[in-house]
Every structure is written in C-alpha cells, then in structure tokens.
Nucleic acid binder design. Structure first.
Lengths: 343, 343
DNA sequence: GTGAAAGCGCTAACAG
DNA sequence: CTGTTAGCGCTTTCAC
C-alpha cells in the first residue's frame, strides 16, 4: 500500500497540488482559500492518512527538521539526561534529534559531524566536543552553521556555549573539604586532560587550597587514562593513599572516575570517610545510595539542555552562527562521604 | 557557500551526472567505466568537498537511511546503554538512529511512531513499547513494516522480539533469597502493570515460592504508580515492613523501583540486610557501590542491542515484517544486600 | 480563489 | 563506456 501524496489528495478532489499544500500548511487563510475547500482538503487528507514526506519537503526547502547532538557517550547518565531534555525541547518545535557518541575519539567526532551536516543536513549541531583543534569548527563558523557547545568548550574558539561554572563548583567542593577538617586533599583527574571542564575543575581546586593557605603538592593530583580507567584508577588511588603521599580526602573529577575510585577504595578495605573522604564533581541518582552517600557538585542538566536549544534556535532562526554564553551555577550537595558538616 | 552537488562535479569535468553518480556509488566497475575517469571524478568530488544529499537520495530511492528507536525514557541507564549499542551497530551499516522517549504514555508513543514512520520515513523501528493495544502495530504488520520489539512485548501480538528470560531470572532471584534463609519475601511492582516484563517477573517470583513450599500472601506484592513513584514507594515499603505484613526481604521489579525502595528503607532507619534484605531485577553500575552493594539480576544490554539490530536488518533487507524471537539469559549477581550466600 | 509549472539533488531505465 | 531523460513529493512563483 503506497502512501498518500499531495497529488493523490489533489486528484481525488479535482484540485491542484498547490491548493492542497497551502491548506495543509495553514497558509490557506492568507491566500483566501474558502473555508469549504479547506474542510474538504483536510477531510481527504485525514481519510487517506496523509503525512508530508519530510525528505521531499526537505529537499525542496533545504530544511531537514533534524538537529544533531554529539556527545562522548550517550550511555553516561549525564549526557543521557541532557539528551532527554534536548529531545523534548526540540520536539516541541517540530524537530527531531539525531544523537551520536564520539567515544572521546577526535577523528570519530569529526566524521560524525561531517555525516550529520553534509549527508543528513541537520539544521544545527549541539556538541560536547572532544576535539582539541578548532579546524572543523572554524569551517562551520565560516559557513555560518548553527552550533552550540555544551559542557565542554574549545579553548580559544568563540562560539555559543552552555555549561556550568566548573571553577566555582570545584572551589566550593574543595572548600567544603577544607572546612570539614581535611588538609591533605588529593584529586583524581583524567588524562589526556585537554577538556576545558576538567582543567577548570583542577584550577578551582587549586584556588581553594591557595586561598586557605594549604601548600599544594604535585603528587596530590593523579591522572587516569580514559581508555583504561579501571586499572589506572587503582594505581592512582593506591598512590594517593600510599604512606608517602597519604592524602586524607579525594576529589574526583567526574562521575565515571568517582565510581572507579569507590571501587578502588573498597578494594583497599579503607573506610569512607573515616580512612579517606571522597567527593565527586557531577551528581548521579545513585550517589544518594552509594556506600556511603556521596557528597557531590550537581550540575543543572535540564537547564543545560533547555538553554542549549534556545541558543541553537536563535541561530537557526537567524540562519547564522552566533556567539552567546550561558554559564549555569552548580549546587553543592552535602551527604556523608566526607564526614559531618562543619560550618 | 553553496554545497557541491553532483551537477557541479559533472559540469566541472564535462561529463554527465549519471557517470559521477555511478563512480561515487562504487558502481563504476560493473558498468565498465575507465579507471582514469573514475580517478578524475573522485578527485574532483574530494576537491569540491562533495557529499551526497541524503534527502535527495532518500526521496529518489525511498530509503531514508535512518532507523527509529522508541523507549520509555532514554535517560534510564538501561535504555541508554541499549541505545548506545544500537547506535553503534546501525552506524556500521551506514544508518543513523533517531531516538525518542515515550515517557510511558501510550498516546505519546503512538504519535512518535507515526512521526517516525510517516514523516521521517525511518526504514524500521525498534521499540520498547508501552502500548497495551495492538492496533497500531497490526497496521505496521499489515504494511510489512520492519519492526522489532525489545525488552517488552505486546501480549498476543506476534512480532520479532529481543528480551531476556524474565521469568527465569526472577525465579533465580527469589530462589536465592529463599536459599539465603528468607521466608517472607515481598515484592515492589509498578502499576498499572500491563508491561509483559513485569508480569513475567512477578510470575517467576511466585513460581519460586510455590516450588519451595512457601505460601504466597497477597499483601506481599505492593504496587507503586509510575507517575508518583516517590510517594507511592514509601507507602509500599511501609506496608511491607509493617508488623502485620512483616516481610524479611524485598524483591524490586526494576532499577527505578530499587532506588526508591533504598531511599524508603533508609528513611525508616532499617538496616540492610539485617533488618530487611533487598534485591533488584536489572543491574546498574552504581549498585556495585550502593549501601550495601545490591544483589541483582543483570540483563545483557549489549546483546539486546546487537540482536535487535540483526533482527531488524533482516526485515529491512527482505523488505518485510517478519517474526523471530531471541530470548537472552540473565545473570544473577550476588553482592551483599541479602546477607551471605547459602548454597 | 485557484492552477500550471519549475526545480530542489539524486538515481535508474534506456539509448547509443 | 557514456549521456539523456524522467521523476521521487514537495513548495513557490507567477499567471489567470
């Protein structure tokens, strides 16, 4: 059973395709098409179960009605939630969302963006980039291609961006640790550390130490590698907790690292927070129930989604690339993983 | 800067569009187009940064190269992981994935499927349905529309399906509880309970009780409502743990319910597993670190993704709806939430 | 108030 | 080996 086209409706009614198109696109009134004719058309469309073919329409208008989202990994709850919100927001505006995961590999992300833009002709891109180089984005900018970065920004490249104040969030978290009585505070970071968010978090942490007169020790920051997070996290934690370094608290740079650190700490049979405190930048539902419940810095994931769509739509409507930043506040959520609250 | 089209390449080279199309679609050899011409064409395409326009191609061929995935909520890690795998698998075959969340509302799912099929012309659909009625799917079937269900199946409707053996998984879990010494075993379920998976889990649980000669008490199964899970879970847990019911262990029907039960139990200041044991159907990374680590039944999420794509592709290639089931095994993961292992 | 006709970029049947 | 042509389904300009 072939699907009904405009032509089918037109022929069935002995009118022109134009007329049908006009009616179905709600342009009938401005063209002064009689109420009666309109009714007839709508009825027939319903009857034949007509739906416009997006590909045909897209080909004609140059609008695909699809927007693209590229993140590192859609199965990370942080991105999954953002994606959920974005999907919802763009759906309200009649758009669909194509989501792709780059797995943190640059070449893959570049390929993905090419595919989305050039083949699928998505009308705009929201991306949590893993790229270090602005080449591809410069090209997009030159073409006035609607683009907004979320979560991570590309250093030295100016574009629309929605993210959180990583520096401040990390500062508050470190400050909380300090006020809770910890002096030797370690950090587990991810390397290679070209991601803007991570850098800002490290800086915030260092700022807090300095502010409270704690001398920073290079051994306090250990990095784990993204591709082998399980093993390297063990090493990092062992190092931090070894007698020579002997950290009292661990600041983890994201949810992924936190989960692995918890595992490593449990493996060492250390108690939290008695033997070592731990906190995490980025909250997960599950951290409420972890052993013990984790103190975290929560990011406003929904707002990130909503705002990114707003910024993108502004560009799509204006048919151009534009720059506008939105830095959202984080929220310190104090639970039990660093002892009781002082203050 | 307009994007290069076939015509641009053809004109630049003084050849026909057909020739260019043939070369770029790797059909040159079977048409015996000279090596030299092919090189020329490819070089020019590269030079002009040519990418085929999917909309034009799709319009012509009737293939959108997009497949659709509909789940209840993409921010649920269970679906997020499946989606990740599906995205990866279809990408290898040159397809893109459009993901939509139905939020467990039937009308929304129906609308979503209509949109995907009729407007976007996705070539096939993978759905974890929330519908109770087969009407829409019967229609799809009649149209020979490629379709595969995952996770949930529609009772009485035969279609391709990939899921796990919920019955057996639940049975094993209940059996584990029984063997661990618990006799009064409660369950927290979700209502309205029209989802096949949940029914099967309840059945498996009841089967185990019967097998071990434990008389089932109706009060042992409490339901929470999907739209107000927070409050209703509290009630359900209170009821189960009240003196009159006095359950010793709680079997939660999915990850969402488990998280809420944990919260409720903590609120009552009950200890796990000393005061009450708890287990969950469906594993989360975080359950490894929950307080205490949860014993769960894990589902092979990756396999579900991989198999569903296989079944779908079979239909897409054959251009027809077809029926084929794949029931995957679950895995009992014993941690600490129901005491030590007896066996 | 309504219709005819062109054309978006591509593929495929057919011709030479 | 290569080119011509038609047409997928839609929107839009222009004409009546």
């Amino acid at each position: 059973m072939k699907r009904a086209s405009l032509k089918d409706i037109a022929e069935a009614l002995n009118v022109s395709k134009t007329l049908v198109s006009l009616v179905l696109n709600n342009k009938a009134d401005e063209w002064g098409i009689s109420e009666e004719t309109q009714k007839k058309v709508r009825k027939k469309a319903e009857e034949l179960n007509y739906y416009p073919n997006q590909m045909a329409r897209g080909l004609r208008t140059g609008k695909s009605n699809i927007i693209g989202l590229v993140v590192a990994d859609i199965s990370n709850p942080f991105y999954a939630k953002i994606s959920r919100t974005i999907e919802f927001e763009v759906a309200r505006l009649g758009y669909h969302l194509l989501v792709c995961s780059s797995d943190e590999v640059e070449e893959k992300e570049i390929k993905l963006i090419e595919l989305l833009r050039d083949r699928q002709r998505v009308e705009g891109l929201i991306v949590a980039t893993t790229q270090q180089n602005a080449e591809q984005f410069n090209q997009l900018k030159k073409q006035q291609y609607p683009l907004v970065f979320i979560d991570r920004k590309l250093p030295g490249f100016s574009a629309s961006y929605v993210g959180v104040d990583n520096n401040k969030g990390a500062y508050q978290m470190a400050e909380h640790l300090i006020k809770s009585g910890f002096k030797k505070i370690g950090m587990v970071n991810i390397s290679p550390m070209h991601l803007s968010t991570l850098n800002e978090r490290v800086d915030g942490y260092k700022d807090a130490l300095k502010k409270y007169g704690i001398k920073f020790n290079n051994d306090w920051v250990q990095s784990v590698s993204y591709n082998d997070i399980g093993n390297t996290t063990n090493e990092a934690v062992n190092k931090l907790l070894s007698p020579s370094v002997g950290v009292e608290a661990i600041f983890t740079v994201n949810n992924y690292v936190a989960i692995n650190c918890l595992q490593a700490i449990h493996k060492l049979k250390k108690r939290i927070p008695q033997d070592v405190a731990i906190v995490c930048f980025d909250d997960l539902d599950a951290f409420n129930f972890s052993h013990p419940p984790l103190t975290t810095v929560a990011q406003p994931v929904e707002d990130i989604g909503v705002e990114s769509v707003k910024l993108l739509m502004k560009q799509i409507d204006g048919k151009k690339f534009s720059v506008s930043e939105k830095i959202l506040p984080t929220k310190l959520i104090i639970r039990e993983s660093c002892g009781s609250v002082v203050a």
